[in-house]
Design a protein around this nucleic acid. Structure first.
Lengths: 239, 239
DNA sequence: TCAAAAGTGTTATGATTACACCCATGA
DNA sequence: TCATGGGTGTAATCATAACACTTTTGA
C-alpha cells in the first residue's frame, strides 16, 4: 500500500503515510452564556504565523476521512463521542498558497462542559471565539466557517441537533436561547415551550435548577431513542 | 507548478497534470414520462469492464473542483448551464480497488429536452436508468447515488430546484407529478395548485398545451428573478 | 356522449402567533 | 416587596387536507 516516490528536482524520497494534497479542516462549535462560539487555533510556524485558523490536519493513507476528522478532534479536545458531520470539499486552486491542496470541511458540535483544551498540532494556542467576533483567518477558513454557519442554521431547524451544544440537563429557556442565538431571531417563550414539548423528544427529568435567584425551572434531557422511534413513524423535526 | 515524480517500483514517469488520488463523480438526474432517471456510463476497460457507473473524471491541477465537475458534465452532455451542486467527499480507504482515491460527489439536474448524449471518456456507452431500476454499480457508486437521492429529496422540499428537471414551459400537473415521483407520495391536485400558485414563483405564460385529448392546461415558467426578490424579503420555499 | 384532465369551492382541523396573566424564589 | 424568569390560558389567524363539484377538450 505504501508507495515510494522520488521528487525529480530535489531527489527527495517521499513516503506517503498521509495523503498528499488533501486535508481536513474542522469548525468546532460551542455555546456558552448565550453565545455561539468557534474553537480556533493560532499558527505557530510558517507563512501564516500568528494568524488564527480552523483546526485541521492530514488524512492517513489508510484512514477513512470521517475517522480522520474524528481523530483530529480527539487530539485537540480529548473528547471521544462528538457530533460531527462533513460539510463539503473546498477546492479553489488558489486556496492554499504553497501548492494545490483540497480540503474537506467538517463541523462539530460540542458540550463545552465536557471539554478541556489540549494543546497539540503545530499550533501553539487554541481559543474560543464568539461567532460575532471572528478575526481574519488563514487561507479560505473564513469562507469555510461562514459556510458551516449557514449549514448549521439550516440543519438546526430540520433535525434535533442543537442539544449537542447544551449540557446533558438543560431548561427550556436555555434551549430557546440557543435557537435564538443561532438563528438570530426572537422567539415567544410560551409558544416555544408548547411546540417543543408537543414533539415529545424531551425527557422530563423531574429535577429542578438549583442556585438560581428566581423560580427554578424543570430540567430536561434530549432522548435519542425516542427520536429514533418517532422518526421511524414518519415524524419530521421542524423549527 | 508541474511536479515530476518517478514511481520507484515501475520507473514510470508521472506528470501531475491532474490531481492524484482525487476524482469527481457526478449523479445526473433527468425526468421523463413521470420517472426520475439517472445517466450512467458503461466502463469499456479495466477491471470494471462492462459494469455501469457514475460519470466522473479527474481534476486538473489548476482547476477549481466545481469547474471540473462542470467540465466533465459538458464533455458528456454538451450542455453548458446546468444545475450542479456538490454533495460531499467520499473517502472510504477501500472504496477504490486500485489505490487510495477520494472522490467528490456532485449531482446535476438537467432538462432532458435539451440533452444529447455525447460519447466520450473511457466509457463506451451512456444510458438513462430509471431510479427504480438501478443495477449494481462499480466501486461505491450505489452509495453515492443513494446519498444524492436522499439529498435531492430534502433539497426539493426546501428550494425551488425541481423546475430544472422540467421543460422551460410546463403545466402544474407535470410539476406535481415530479414531486410525487421524487418524494414518493401522492398529492391532492387542487391543494397543490393553490399552494404553488400562492408562492407567486411561477409566471403565467398565457399559453396552453396543444395536442392533448382533454382540456388543455395553462403553461407556466419558473421565474428566477421573482424568486430572488422574494428570498431577499425573507420568503422561504417549503414543500 | 364519454373519458380525462383542468380548474374552483367549501369545510374541518390543526398549527402558529400574539399577548395577558399568574407562580415561585432569592435578594 | 420587587425583580426575574417559570409556566398556563386564550383567542385570532393562517395553513393544510379532504373531497365534492364544474369546465373544457378530443376522440
Amino acid at each position: 500500500m505504501k508507495k515510494q516516490l522520488v521528487d525529480k528536482e530535489s531527489g527527495e524520497l517521499i513516503e506517503t503515510e498521509v495523503m498528499k494534497s488533501i486535508t481536513i479542516d474542522c469548525v468546532i462549535f460551542g455555546f456558552e452564556n448565550g453565545s455561539l462560539e468557534v474553537l480556533l487555533v493560532k499558527h505557530a510556524e510558517g507563512i501564516s504565523k500568528g494568524k488564527w485558523g480552523l483546526p485541521g490536519g492530514w488524512i492517513l493513507n489508510n484512514e477513512d476521512i470521517d475517522c480522520a476528522a474524528q481523530r483530529l478532534l480527539k487530539e485537540l479536545t480529548s473528547l471521544k463521542s462528538i457530533y460531527l458531520e462533513q460539510l463539503k470539499a473546498f477546492g479553489d486552486p488558489n486556496r492554499f498558497p504553497l501548492g494545490r491542496v483540497i480540503t474537506i470541511g467538517y463541523y462539530a458540535l460540542i458540550k463545552k462542559e465536557d471539554y478541556n483544551i489540549k494543546a497539540g498540532f503545530t499550533a501553539s494556542e487554541a481559543k474560543w471565539h464568539k461567532i460575532k467576533e471572528i478575526p481574519d483567518l488563514i487561507y479560505d477558513h473564513n469562507k469555510i466557517l461562514n459556510y458551516s454557519l449557514e449549514n448549521l442554521r439550516k440543519k438546526i431547524r430540520q433535525a434535533p441537533i442543537g442539544f449537542n451544544l447544551l449540557p446533558e440537563k438543560f431548561t427550556l429557556l436555555q434551549l430557546m436561547q440557543l435557537y435564538e442565538e443561532i438563528l438570530n431571531v426572537g422567539m415567544d417563550k410560551p409558544n416555544f415551550r408548547r411546540k417543543i414539548l408537543k414533539m415529545k423528544l424531551l425527557k422530563d427529568l423531574n429535577e429542578k435548577q438549583t442556585e438560581v435567584s428566581h423560580r427554578a425551572a424543570k430540567l430536561y434531557r434530549f432522548d435519542h431513542e425516542i427520536y429514533k422511534k418517532l422518526t421511524k413513524k414518519g415524524f419530521n423535526f421542524e423549527f
